[in-house]
């Protein structure tokens, strides 16, 4: 952890593994010399430099648990992006990647903080929330967690198998999916965008004082945050991380 005051510096991490998650996303596993560890929910800045010196910079949430020695970044490929196509298509095991972090202590959770957690994710916004879920398991923590996860289609549910396996062995981890575009014929879950009615059904009662983390595209995050406050949740306990249309 950041015990020693320091300014944030750029450094090089080595790609030690890559793994496709879904047709549009890929996980990069990095070894970062001198990495001080992170808190679940934090992100890193990644910087690419072209031969002519032009630089492009983006932020990526860390998807791995702090207990894991490698840092996993989840990258969604944006076709017109300056950074993400390189990270999903070009980068190879053994390559270096310039980055800095971990960044951000606000959108972060540590198992010892406890609290009834409500996690709401849209698409690749699952990354920092996955770090929390993995951290909770690695720490042997049984804080009740409810994850509401919005994906475009069944095939695009990132970390689907791992989430299923985690929920199957842990009754205090509940996962509810909603599919916004295509759902399989036998799909019995939600099949629409997250709305106030869905949140009223899923979210723990405001009186229980759950701690909410919401991450995904800006419109989803703002809708969910507004609806949760409308349901009586305290704004300070609804933490948000907007991905924005980052141009990745």
């Amino acid at each position: 952890m950041a015990d020693i005051p320091r300014k944030l510096a750029w450094r090089i991490g080595e790609v030690v593994e890559t793994s496709p998650d879904t047709p549009r996303t890929k996980s990069l596993f990095l070894k970062i010399p001198g990495w001080e560890g992170h808190r679940a929910g934090q992100h890193v800045d990644v910087r690419l430099t072209a031969e002519d010196g032009y630089q492009a910079q983006r932020s990526y949430s860390i998807a791995s648990a702090p207990e894991n020695g490698r840092v996993e970044l989840l990258v969604e490929r944006l076709d017109d992006g300056e950074v993400s196509p390189y990270l999903t298509d070009e980068i190879r095991v053994g390559d270096g990647l310039e980055l800095r972090g971990p960044i951000g202590g606000w959108f972060a959770w540590e198992a010892r903080e406890g609290g009834h957690l409500l996690l709401v994710a849209g698409g690749s916004g699952i990354a920092p929330l996955m770090a929390m879920i993995r951290h909770r398991k690695a720490a042997g923590n049984d804080t009740p967690v409810r994850l509401l996860y919005s994906s475009r289609s069944y095939e695009e549910i990132i970390f689907r198998e791992e989430l299923e396996a985690l929920a199957a062995e842990d009754t205090s981890l509940e996962i509810i999916h909603t599919l916004t575009r295509w759902a399989p014929p036998e799909w019995e879950g939600y099949h629409r965008r997250i709305d106030a009615e869905m949140l009223a059904e899923i979210a723990p009662a405001a009186e229980e004082g759950p701690l909410a983390f919401v991450c995904g595209p800006t419109p989803l995050v703002e809708t969910v945050a507004t609806d949760l406050v409308g349901l009586g949740h305290e704004p300070a306990r609804v933490k948000t991380e907007r991905f924005g249309p980052t141009g990745g």
């Binding site: 950041a2 005051p5 320091r6 300014k7 944030l8 992100h43 800045d45 910079q57 932020s59 800095r100 972090g101 960044i103 951000g104 202590g105 606000w106 959108f107 800006t218 419109p219 703002e222 948000t240 991380e241 907007r242 924005g244 249309p245």
Partner: peptide, 24 residues
């Protein structure tokens, strides 16, 4: 809706270049 609106967390990087304590 302003499409470049992000959370204060997103400023953590550049503020971390300037300040030695956690700004977020």
């Amino acid at each position: 809706m302003d499409e470049h609106r992000l959370d204060g967390n997103a400023a953590g990087g550049i503020l971390g270049e300037v300040f030695t304590f956690e700004m977020t």
